[in-house]
């Protein structure tokens, strides 16, 4: 009797020891994935950056690494990313913020409970479907107003991308606004302010770092978005700041090259990893900033 208890205790300890290591390995996998991404980007784009002088990355005005007379102006790709992201933010930041204020301060609990998950569906739509919608529905509609709009335009892609990232702003923004203590609101009401006044002068500043985190994460998402821009904004890199024009983003370039035949180690192969490395650095900056802002907000409340 006693002996079997000791044995089973020993067995439990063995299981415990094994499980700790299995679970710990699970925790490390996420780090391994990050290392996998970083190491792949560094090693596969290394030959590209070794071959192309930094000077040409900055000073060239076209991005044609696959041509016989290659040009390496990365600004042509960055311009596309900048413009589409800018258009998306012009949609998502005002609309998302107003919706966050509305849901947090104006809507009834029941309405909020129903609407919030429905809004979140907007970011669950497969991006290839959004691309289809931008190219075949929104662009023809925009062409009624802007007859000169080409078939592929950064405006159309950016607008749809803005719709896609609204939930990022609204959901996170609303969460942080609702965690502003009721006492602060009541104080402002007692001084005679209205609902909107309280929302703008008390809740908004109180939740600002949470909202800022939401904006930053939305930017990161827009910069990395691929299918919408690849389908609707065009695949030709072009140094232009005109949203009515078509141009490729960093992500669209990767798709465009991937669509062709891509032998391992070719210049095309190296160039998409170079574009990927640039993309990784940009989004890493936004993600870390967003994480820090969110943490700060949680500490403050």
């Amino acid at each position: 009797m006693l002996f079997s208890k000791v044995a089973s205790r020993r067995w439990d300890k063995g299981v415990e020891w094994a499980m700790v290591w299995i679970l710990r390995f699970g925790g490390w996998i996420s780090v391994l994935v990050t290392f996998g991404i970083v190491i792949t980007l560094v090693t596969e784009s290394g030959p590209f950056f070794a071959k192309v002088p930094f000077q040409r990355l900055v000073s060239d005005r076209m991005w044609t690494p696959l041509f016989a007379d290659p040009q390496y102006g990365i600004s042509a790709l960055l311009a596309g990313t900048l413009v589409t992201t800018g258009v998306a933010l012009l949609v998502a930041v005002p609309l998302g913020t107003i919706l966050a204020i509305f849901l947090s301060e104006f809507a009834s609990v029941r309405l909020r409970e129903v609407v919030k998950p429905m809004l979140e569906l907007l970011s669950a739509v497969p991006t290839v479907v959004y691309g289809y919608f931008a190219l075949l529905t929104l662009t023809p509609l925009l062409q009624i107003v802007l007859p000169d709009l080409p078939q592929f335009s950064m405006l159309s892609a950016g607008l749809i991308m803005g719709i896609m990232i609204i939930p990022y702003v609204t959901s996170l923004g609303e969460d942080s606004m609702r965690s502003v203590p009721m006492l602060l609101r009541e104080g402002a009401y007692a001084l005679g302010d209205g609902k909107l006044g309280v929302a703008l002068r008390v809740v908004f500043p109180g939740a600002f770092s949470g909202l800022a985190a939401a904006y930053v994460l939305a930017i990161s998402r827009a910069v990395g978005e691929t299918m919408i821009v690849a389908i609707a904004a065009g695949l030709q890199p072009k140094l232009t700041m005109n949203p009515l024009d078509s141009a490729a983003t960093v992500t669209a370039f990767i798709v465009q090259v991937s669509l062709g035949d891509l032998p391992h180690g070719s210049i095309g192969y190296q160039s998409i990893f170079a574009a990927g490395a640039v993309l990784f650095l940009m989004t890493l900056g936004f993600n870390l900033a967003g994480h820090a802002l969110r943490r700060r907000f949680h500490h403050a409340v």
Binding site: T34, I37, L217, R221, V223, G224, T226, F280, H291
Partner: peptide, 9 residues
């Protein structure tokens, strides 16, 4: 950060 890495990467 991993949750925010673009899917294409």
């Amino acid at each position: 950060n991993l949750a925010g890495v673009p899917s294409i990467l």
